[in-house]
Design a protein around this nucleic acid. Sequence first.
DNA 1: GTTACTGCAAAGATTTTGCACCTAT
DNA 2: ATAGGTGCAAAATCTTTGCAGTAAC
Lengths: 143, 143
Amino acid sequence: MKTETLQFKSYIEEKGLLFTPERQSVAEEVFSSHDHLDAEKVLKSLRVRGSKVSRATVYRTLDLLVESGLVEKIDLGEDRAAYEHIAGHPHHDHLVCLRCGKVQEFEEPLIEQLQEWACEKASFKATGHSLNIYGYCENCTAK
Amino acid sequence: MKTETLQFKSYIEEKGLLFTPERQSVAEEVFSSHDHLDAEKVLKSLRVRGSKVSRATVYRTLDLLVESGLVEKIDLGEDRAAYEHIAGHPHHDHLVCLRCGKVQEFEEPLIEQLQEWACEKASFKATGHSLNIYGYCENCTAK
DNA sequence: GTTACTGCAAAGATTTTGCACCTAT
DNA sequence: ATAGGTGCAAAATCTTTGCAGTAAC
């Protein structure tokens, strides 16, 4: 079992909950993908792999994964929520292509620093943030 | 009529569309508020003022306002879209309080600069962006 | 007399929830 | 036994759309 899956198992069990096969399937699906996933994609991949987890359980497990801190819920300006696992994935922001939908990631430590500064000035206690830049990716600009 | 309402009227008429009383009402409502509005709030305010514009027309007019460039659609991580008018309102980002829901604005020109830089590095042609910081405002931290 | 606009109610889409049944301790 | 989990279908929420009637040019 992957390290992350094990961490999720620990989280679940420490909370006195059960690490069911359904929860394991959803977790493995999320941890095995390096793309941005949404509930529907997770469900479809599970179905393709022959795993029969219901939509409700996918949603419920995604919430647990977020609670555990192993997965982040991100909002890319679309109508459905996306998720990405965090392990080996330092915090980053997103470049969202409005034409092809591709999402690139970028990192800019100085931006993070300036955000902290802005929060201090406003006496605001930050717990997280989301920075999306919308526009056109290299491919789509060329056309 | 407010300058912004007149600009919207021009935009509408240049497109060969009609500047109806309904469109005017919605525009005035949006331009007169300095808060973040959503479709439902606009509808309610209009009702309170005795204006009977349908929900569908509110949505349709908000789209037009965004198209006109006078209003920005912003996504504060909630389930409904928020809108704010742009005039006299330089670009800014948002501090969203997870407890009381208050949204404060802040500006940090250097962040904008760094974003441009990040886009250049990725050969990405940006058209807009959204930066939300989530956490707890001064009031809510105190408690 | 077209073309465009509105309102209504229905449809869409995503996510949540109530409930009956099942499973682990 | 008891607490928790799952699946299903219904509900909830926000937004869009089809259509019939109305108004503007």
